[in-house]
Write a protein that binds this DNA or RNA. Structure first.
Length: 474
RNA sequence: GCGCCCAUCGUCUAGCGGUCCAGGACGUCGCCCUUUCACGGCGAAAACACGGGUUCGAUUCCCGUUGGGCGCGCCA
């Protein structure tokens, strides 16, 4: 246990925690938990314009909901600006960085010219070796890294393998802005180093940055952490997951009725695999995870598969747990608050009793809540279109004819009502379905529900009889 | 434009030179179960992007083409 792994998740608080970030966080979390290391959280808020406290809250909330707990307090990058400047002073002193007085207009021209000549738009190093005495008066300089111009920089990546970048393509990027604020490129390196990060797992949009950051590590004489760049997640159409393609924050997945355990499992299998295995409980995925199992090609997000997986987790839960999970989620679900306001002890009990029949018909908590709707409905019930058709198409007559027999029942249970209904069907020369469907329509207002005799039992004698009577005479 | 990454069924993927006329999962379709809808069971259709090599032998290795993606800011 001499070399403990330290991983981190480092989002910038400029928006919600999106699905790609959630997966990155999951991978880092899994590795730390598997190896008995630490999983740290760093908020990269050096962009003062775009960072917001709301976004910070959304990210923390999202991670908590997903069950990804971080070790220690979250670190805010902006608060470490003094330390970042200190490191730059050190680089300046060692000649590994220099002041650049080029104006914004100058840089624009430089890039435009490079493009026109078919060269990559890079800083040309015009202040790299210039005398400080040449500095124009009144211009605050930026500080740039004195990067190697020849040779190559190699990134040993846990996912991508050995990736080699010609140094001529990597320019002298900015470390400190003219107002003295550190840039992301600098801050990441300093913070990862100071936090003792040993393994970086992040999106492969950072792969090129890895080479640039390697230059900083080398300039400082610091060891480069192990890196793993994970291919990005794309939308269902193959294009980048963006707002317009329905990129959602994890809070949206909660509102859609997904279970954190199911989302974790889905996210794990999106880009990571271990043979044919699909299902991993949380302890199992901690046990099984490894960087070497991460795939190299980008993947597309597939709601259908997530939904299927969520259904598996839903059905696999114990009834009481699922009932409690549903109740706890109600505030976040579309019509949840309304149901919550009607939830009393009696309904809590009924919800539990109904769970076996409900859960195998639902893939999400939203569907589960919807299925449970008949337990909360008040008379007279709202009747859906399909249920109405059943009632209009001869259903009401059956209800009226069944009523006396049901009323005369001694005991009221699934078994006793089933016997009565079957007896009636036989007498009427009807198939069970022909009488069960009108009952379902009257009792639930829908054309689909759990087994009808269970519904009768759940609702109880008085409520059942009243609902049937409502529709028999309507 | 330059650099880098990627390329197996519609989707997620297994495959790490012969075991592959390519396996699993989701989705789709059919059948069974059945009071509805589901669940469950059974079955079907469905892929190695293309072209060159290397090799006795390529889905697996190399090169190119094509197609995607990412990066190239005093953003992160």
């Amino acid at each position: 246990m001499s070399s403990t792994v330290v991983t981190r998740f480092a989002p910038s608080p400029t928006g919600f925690l999106h699905i790609g970030g959630a997966r990155t966080a999951l991978f880092n979390w899994l590795l730390a938990r598997k190896l008995g290391g630490r999983f740290l959280l760093r908020i990269e808020d050096t962009d003062r314009e775009r960072s917001t406290p709301e976004a910070v809250a959304a990210i923390l909330d999202g991670l908590e909901w997903l069950g990804l707990d971080w070790d220690g307090d979250a670190l805010f990058q902006f608060a470490r600006a003094d330390r970042h400047r200190e490191v730059v002073e050190e680089m300046l002193a060692k000649g590994r960085a220099y002041r650049c007085y080029a104006s914004a207009a100058e840089l624009d021209d430089m890039r435009a010219l490079a493009r026109a000549e078919g060269r990559p738009p890079r800083y040309d190093g015009r202040w790299r070796d210039r005398d400080a005495a040449d500095a124009p008066a009144g211009v605050k300089p930026v500080i740039r890294l004195r990067a190697p111009t020849d040779g190559v920089t190699t990134v040993e990546d846990g996912v991508q393998g050995r990736v080699v970048f010609p140094n001529k393509d990597l320019d002298d990027f900015v470390l400190l802005r003219s107002d003295g604020a550190p840039t992301y490129m600098l801050a990441v390196v300093v913070d990862d180093h100071d936090m003792g990060v040993t393994q970086i797992i992040r999106g492969d949009d950072h792969l090129t940055n890895a080479a640039r950051q390697t230059h900083i590590y080398e300039a400082l004489g610091w060891p480069v952490p192990a890196m793993a760049h994970v291919p990005l997640i794309h939308g269902q159409d193959g294009a980048k997951l963006s707002k317009r393609h329905g990129a959602l924050g994890v809070d949206a997945y909660r509102a859609l009725g997904y279970l954190p355990a199911a989302l974790r499992n889905y996210l794990l299998r999106l880009g990571w695999s271990q043979g044919d295995r699909e299902f991993f409980s949380t302890p199992d995925m901690i046990e099984a995870f490894s960087v070497s199992g991460i795939g190299r090609s980008p993947s597309r997000f597939d709601f259908a598969k997530l939904e299927n997986m969520n259904g598996h987790y839903l059905r696999g839960m114990a009834d009481a747990d699922l009932r409690d999970t549903l109740v706890a989620a109600l505030p976040h679900l579309p019509d949840g608050p309304a149901l919550l306001s009607k939830l009393d002890d009696s309904r809590r009990a009924k919800l539990l009793a109904a769970m076996p029949g409900l859960k195998e018909r639902a893939k999400t908590l939203v569907e589960l809540a919807d299925g449970a709707g008949f337990l909360f409905a008040a008379r007279p019930l709202a009747i859906e279109a399909k249920a109405k058709e059943i009632l209009e198409g001869g259903g009401r007559a059956h209800l009226a004819a069944m009523l006396p027999g049901l009323r005369a029942l001694e005991g009221w249970s699934a078994a006793s009502t089933e016997a009565a209904v079957r007896a009636y069907a036989e007498r009427a020369g009807a198939k069970l379905g022909q009488v069960a469907q009108p009952l379902r329509a009257a009792l639930t207002g829908k054309a689909a529900s759990p087994g009808i005799f269970d519904v009768l039992d759940l609702l109880g004698r008085d409520e059942s009889l009243a609902r049937i009577a409502d529709q028999a005479t309507a």
